[in-house]
Design a protein around this nucleic acid. Structure first.
Lengths: 113, 113
DNA sequence: TTGTTATATTGATATTCATCAATGTGTTGG
DNA sequence: CCAACACATTGATGAATATCAATATAACAA
């Protein structure tokens, strides 16, 4: 089981904005249409559309058209991937590295250790 | 218990880069010094220092000086804050909003609903 | 088909980000 | 003190980001 760090970084980046992380958390309540989401923020409609595109492109959020409206929900599969990665992180108390480097990093040249 | 979305976004942003999320995961193994971390990446020492500063500023990573070396570990308290937030997110299947907006968003003017 | 509402896209812009080379700072050994 | 090593900071730069105004697109209702 290989870790896809590029994907983890992309998921984190999608949530690395206050507006987007609020929207994501808001969707815990259930499906929301864009106009309802917009009510909660002091941003323009085009900016919201931009943020929703980022959330959807990351895979964290699904959008579906319902007539005039776009309705958004959390994508449970991608959420699970994120949860598993985060929960797999541990603050280990292992002993320190003893043997560190011997090199001249000014020149980016490393000698034998 | 109030949610600090600004902080959540800052934590996510700190991990929203492939190099940084790899470093963070690597620290699950235990304490690592900067020169050891540097071995695993094709970046310069100054770039690594920049990334370590971002990780430390976010609170996710602690650094301590040990003589010549800087040794880094995961900060368990901040990790716990992140875990609790992520694990609190759920992909709810609640019913949809029925009443959406009535307004002219071209003008950013909203009428009575 | 025409007008209205909801959402997406485009173009412009100011800001932030990731990166490197160069240089500065701190620590240790001799 | 001086030289060597580890790490931090600075300055420069190209790329990415967040935002808005303006406009386009899509769906529906009458």
């Amino acid at each position: 089981m290989h870790k896809d760090y590029r994907n983890y970084a992309a998921l984190m980046k999608a949530l690395g904005d206050e507006t987007r992380v609020k929207i994501f958390d808001m969707l815990t309540q259930g499906e929301r249409c864009a106009c309802k989401i917009l009510d909660d923020f002091a941003i323009t409609q085009s900016t919201l559309s931009y943020h929703m595109k980022i959330l959807c492109d990351s895979g964290l959020v699904n959008g579906r058209r319902d007539g005039i409206w776009m309705r958004y929900t959390i994508n449970p599969d991608t959420l699970e991937i994120l949860k598993e990665f985060i929960n797999g992180i541990e603050a280990s108390c292992n002993e320190i590295d003893i043997n560190c480097c011997k090199g001249d990093q000014r020149l980016n040249v490393f000698m034998v250790k």
